[in-house]
């Protein structure tokens, strides 16, 4: 099976779900003839036409708000926010409206909608084309948050998101769009939410990661193996729902946990992981928890040396692995 890219997984999921269900529409900027700035919808406009692939005015709140309305009137919109950094004007529609609609109507109005957004740094995007925004949204009850780390998961998880009856924020590691390659089975189906994946089994310690940091974690684990360290890597896949049982099981097996995330460290998603491990697996720990994350500065900066200094990567994870292994 020839390897495919992560963005191909996204495109295949959109294509197959649109073919399967005529209620699925895509709303976003530059997604039509242009095929999306990352080409996620390349070829779909020609195939499905302007009534299924809708170029939107450049107004993020309305891209989500219109999606909510369409979802409440029988469609299943996939809304694209061009960069996660630009999602903030839509926060109100996502957190106050989409995520709360089902609860506030006592279950009468589900909002079956996906919001896709490329996130993360390492592409020279500076402060506003590099952000990791998952912690902000994983905190919101009623919203599912998904981050694929492989092409097959990109396809399988996006299919699940489109068929789910709840609003789902689907964050795609943009640096990995073409860098992360792997097989996608011909019959790739839905990948269930809430099931973390042990992508590399190991005995000495656990690295918990998602998205691009999972890619780097595998690289770091490979390097560590050459030093005689047997590292387990867990890909969370979905941040809400979180597979707490899967995370805890791995940490209990190895007794040590390194939590890697690209977001800045303070109150990041890794803090929740650390809290759950401390609450529920304290006696299994042989070492303090270790977080590898970005500094608490509003970057990542554009200039390459600054960007490299800012973003955590395989080397930072490897350093963390060594520190934990020595403990």
């Amino acid at each position: 099976m020839a390897d495919k890219t992560l963005i191909e997984g996204i495109r295949e999921a959109l294509d197959e779900e649109m073919a399967r269900d005529e209620r699925v529409i895509v709303i976003g900027t530059d997604i039509g003839v242009r095929g999306g700035v990352f080409l996620a919808t390349q070829g779909l406009y020609a195939k499905y036409g302007p009534n299924r692939i809708l170029d939107a005015p450049l107004a993020e709140s309305s891209i989500v708000g219109v999606g909510i309305g369409a979802a409440m009137n029988g469609l299943r919109p996939v809304c694209e926010i061009q960069f996660a950094d630009f999602i903030h004007p839509a926060y109100n529609q996502i957190a106050n409206e989409a995520a709360r609609m089902f609860y506030r109507t006592g279950g009468q109005y589900p909002v079956p909608m996906v919001i896709r957004a490329p996130y993360g740094g390492g592409v020279g995007g500076g402060l506003y084309h590099s952000q990791s925004i998952e912690a902000t949204f994983a905190h919101v009850p009623g919203l599912k948050v998904v981050i694929p780390a492989t092409p097959a998961d990109a396809k399988g998880l996006l299919k699940t998101a489109i068929r789910d009856n709840n609003p789902t924020l689907f964050l795609e590691p943009k640096k990995g769009y073409r860098m992360i390659r792997g097989p996608i089975p011909e019959d790739q189906g839905c990948v269930p939410f809430g099931e973390a994946r042990v992508s590399r089994p190991g005995r000495d310690l656990t690295v918990l990661a998602y998205g691009m940091m999972h890619f780097y974690a595998l690289q770091a684990a490979e390097s560590a193996a050459k030093e005689g360290l047997d590292v387990e890597v867990v890909d969370l896949r979905t941040l809400n729902p979180l597979d707490s049982a899967g995370v805890l099981a791995s940490v209990r097996r190895t007794g040590k946990a390194l939590i890697a995330y690209e977001d800045n460290k303070f109150v990041g998603y890794g803090a929740e992981l650390a809290a759950q491990i401390a609450e529920d697996a304290f006696t299994a720990l042989d070492a303090p928890l270790l977080r590898v994350a970005a500094p608490d500065a509003p970057a990542a900066p554009y200039s390459h040396p600054l960007q490299d200094a800012f973003l955590p990567g395989p080397r930072a994870i490897l350093d963390g692995i060594r520190t934990l292994a020595r403990y």
Binding site: L54, S61, S62, V64, G65, V66, G67, I68, G69, A70, A71, M72, N73, G74, L75, P77, Q93, E97
Partner: peptide
């Protein structure tokens, strides 16, 4: 915007 979405559908 939600009403616009209802109308769009």
């Amino acid at each position: 915007p939600q009403a616009a979405g209802l109308a769009l559908a």
